[in-house]
Design a protein around this nucleic acid. Structure first.
Lengths: 205, 205, 205, 205
DNA sequence: TATGAATGAGCGTTCATTCAT
DNA sequence: TATGAATGAACGCTCATTCAT
């Protein structure tokens, strides 16, 4: 046993940790430069290794973005499911989902940015069919909340719910492109103000 | 008018028309596949010619996206300037700008999508410094309208105007990614409903 | 008959004149930029026409350099043959050939430069086999003059004639690369001084 | 010395050796076919690899010729400086410089040929400004030796020194185009005979 | 675990050439 | 005679990927 073998090094846990580090590095670069425009050498450089060495950890560049996106989506849906399972009314559900979305942005900013920028192209690849599934589920979730809210009188009925859905989806998720966790406004505070704007509008009353 | 004058006029016009056709083709593909991921050969294929033949019309792939973006921005700013010069109040200006933005999306959808997806990377190239200029002017325009509206009591004062600005910018422009001119809702109708949502919110009253 | 048809225009003579003009233009550019590095568009530009238009006058870029080189070589050999046929002694023949060479450089500078730079590569092409022929004849001519001179005591016998031949060939023809017909020294004056150097050396006596 | 030190030293040395091999291959081809007319694939073929693989070792085709030329010039100037610093008279300096030049040709034949053929075009590129510097220094060196020799009576005064300079420069360096290290005459023997011709002329006395 | 060297497909671009007008 | 538009082959170069060490 060499000294390097002590602790968890060489174990599956250490391996998983290294993967997570590398994926975090890759996500940051994919998000800022774009997936297609990022070379695996750039990722490797940032991780302090040579291009070919990344292939010890990952099958391909594609498997990196795959793991980045699926990890983030799994976690996001866990959070959404917690909200959806807690028996709230339409408006409260709406508020909780928006808040949860900004928390996801806070936690997974690079992955969210990648998701926004790349999923359109990735979706044509069967490997990423889960992106389509997620998009469909996402749409159904919001439409169901909006419909419930219109029915119970919480939300106005004179608007196209499909349009409201897109309005919310876009404004919330694109925020990932400018959000900084060390910015002047916390994720929760941004969520709060966004909720005011979406629910009540920006007109003074 | 000698026949030769007519010929050369027809030729120059035909040439400009061909350029416009090719740029429209390129814009459509850049928008749907992404600029970096689009090959010159794909654009040429779609235009019914070989890769190298595009270089008879354009200096480079870069000069194509340049012309696509600068044409759209020039036109968009002409429309904005018309609104800004017409002496409207803050709220009316706000409404007119939103409406004008959706008309721009209607007319320049691929260019707007490209602008959204690529300007972040393009901006590092001095050739595209006008994108930065446009972004700055755009921000100042909206902040000025919002500030005026807050001062004269039209807009609520308890929100961060910087946040409102981003909220509006994102939600309006990202709409280009799903807007179809042959969709169920016209650009003006989408603008109208977006204005309701932004100004009054989605809560029933 | 249009007015443009008067004089020799449209005739074979006019055509030949135009060819000569175009070849002079091409030769100048081939000489200064190198044949491979010169595009036919550059030649056409300099001639005030479009790239494709040159093909009305010439079959190919290759046929241009072919005509440039063969014209020059034909003329040069006519001059050499005049010297060789005039029954001079070795030393006088030597002097006359050198002088004639500098006159050729004066008259055909671009062609001589092209010949120096390109014939090595051209020679592999059967079309340019006459270049090889010329080189062989050239070598034989000089070796014969040198041998005659050694035999009759004019030239020293302690040097390798093959080396003398190369020495003279190189120094004379490379002069084309810096010679200017409007320079401070005339071709005949350069020939005179070169002859002093070659025959007597640069040492003071 | 740990084994790892030895490894990495061996690796660095092996790498430098491989570069040198590849550059020797490239120089040979650049010299025989011309730089512009040589494709990267041809160089790679000759080196037993694919075109793209060369880019693991070199940044660009240009950086190859750069390294070829700068290495040769550095070495040549070191040799010249040794001669210039040894306090010889004009005539002895002259002889030593010629001899050294032929030794350089012997050692760096392909590089010298490339230098002759390509520097005119390369010089327009700021990256190769050192070629211009070298040319200027070269000219000043020879003119200074010639002037010294004329002043102290070694060289004849009735010739244009600028012309002598070109005469020598051309005849010496163009020799690289036909010199073979395995030819019948050694570099030193060629230098000796050239010196006879240049200093004393070819006339028998 | 990681390196270093190479692969091979494909990219943006150039250019001699063609041809209908 | 010359133009304008296009062809198609080839070029320098990039990059995800492989693999012996």
């Amino acid at each position: 046993m060499s000294p390097r073998r002590r602790d968890s090094e060489g174990t599956a846990a250490a391996r998983a940790e290294r993967r997570a580090e590398l994926l975090a590095t890759a996500a940051e670069i994919f998000a800022s430069r774009g997936y297609a425009a990022t070379t695996v050498r750039e990722v490797a450089d940032a991780a302090g290794m040579l291009g070919g060495s990344l292939y010890y950890h990952f099958d391909s560049k594609e498997s990196m973005i795959d793991e980045i996106l699926s990890t983030f989506l799994t976690d996001m849906w866990a959070a959404y499911d917690r909200v959806l399972g807690s028996g709230l009314g339409a408006r409260e559900t709406f508020q909780a989902l928006i808040t949860e979305s900004f928390r996801t942005i806070d936690q997974y900013r690079p992955a969210v940015v990648i998701y926004q920028n790349e999923s359109k192209h990735l979706v044509t690849n069967p490997r990423f069919s889960y992106l389509l599934d997620s998009q469909r589920r996402f749409r159904e979730m919001w439409l169901s909340v909006l419909d419930r809210g219109v029915l119970d009188g919480a939300f106005r009925a004179d608007l196209d719910t499909g349009l409201i859905y897109r309005f919310i989806r876009d404004t919330v998720w694109v925020a990932a492109s400018w959000y900084r966790s060390d910015g002047p406004l916390s994720a929760d505070e941004i969520a709060r103000q966004y909720l005011v704007m979406i629910l009540e509008g920006i007109l003074s009353t």
